[in-house]
Design a protein around this nucleic acid. Structure first.
Length: 266
DNA sequence: AATCTGAACAACCGCCACCGC
DNA sequence: GGCGGTGGCGGTTGTTCAGAT
């Protein structure tokens, strides 16, 4: 039996399909993707149309390689936000409770890549996600090659890759609780030597630093405004940085934008 | 020139929150 | 309050392409 789903087109988009989608979106807007998919005549799902628009056809998107500035920003923001803090196991009780509250009241996104993408105009979450995976895999392999049996005394963990590739994290001022110190404390911990790392292991290691306490002053020294990390003992509530404006949560501090200053975040 | 390899990119899938009925 | 439709997200896989051998 052939279902509707089976009849839907999948795979790479053709120029003709792109054109149809662009025309339809111009006529009806980039919402109601199910509707757009139907009226466009494309034999695609609404989801597929949305993805194509958001990741490829949307005007203002940058294509091509990341600039060094963008690379640094991604690494920096991922170090701060790149954690899947959805479970109780990932958080202190207080932080988990607060996050659940915000989740319920829709005042904070739990999402990682989209938040990072919002700081990189013209870049999509998908692009950043792909970049990160490629970048981290490459770094992991580089370190794996560098690791000789004799060097096992320096308990290398994957965070050291982050340290070396994220100079922005190293903030001036010599605060004893800046990012470097946080990372270093992890490095001191007796974690496994990089030997046949799986992506899961890499993720675990990458995520570990943000679980550590973060100094507020150190946060404020960052080149761009960042949400205080909800992790750790010194978790500070987000209202320090965010405010409600006409029902939308907005950042108070200036940020990269599309030209009109304050941009609503969620 | 042919083949291999890895990086970059594109797209799909499953999950889940939100919203309207 | 329950339910189904829809959209947004992260994770993952597939494809393409450029550089190395």
């Amino acid at each position: 039996m052939v279902t509707v789903q089976d009849e839907m087109r999948k795979g790479p988009w053709t120029e003709q399909e792109d054109l149809q989608l662009v025309c339809t979106v111009r006529l009806f807007g980039d919402h109601r993707w199910d509707f757009v998919a139907k009226v466009s005549g494309l034999n695609r799902t609404g989801k597929s149309c949305r993805l194509r628009w958001v990741n490829y056809l949307h005007p203002g998107l940058k294509h091509g390689r990341m600039s060094p500035q963008e690379e640094h920003l991604i690494i920096e923001l991922h170090a701060r936000w790149g954690n899947r803090f959805d479970t109780k196991e990932d958080l202190t009780k207080a932080a988990f409770f607060h996050l659940q509250q915000m989740k319920r009241t829709n005042t904070l996104s739990m999402y990682r890549w989209s938040r990072i993408a919002r700081r990189l105009p013209g870049r999509t979450d998908n692009e950043i996600k792909n970049y990160w995976r490629t970048h981290m895999r490459k770094k992991a392999q580089e370190r794996k090659i560098d690791m000789s049996p004799s060097s096992s005394s320096s308990s290398f963990t994957y965070q050291s890759c982050l340290l070396e590739t994220a100079p922005i994290i190293r903030m001036d001022g010599g605060s004893t609780h800046n990012g470097t110190t946080c990372f270093s404390s992890v490095l001191k911990s007796n974690q496994s030597v990089m030997d046949g790392y799986s992506m899961d292991q890499i993720w675990k290691e990458i995520e570990a630093p943000a679980m550590l306490p973060i100094d507020d002053k150190a946060c404020s020294n960052l080149p761009c405004p960042l949400l205080p990390s909800p992790m750790g003992d010194r978790y500070c509530p987000p209202e320090v940085v965010w405010k409600m404006d006409n029902g939308d949560l907005k950042m108070l501090a200036p940020q990269f934008g599309y030209g009109n200053g304050e941009r609503s975040c969620y």
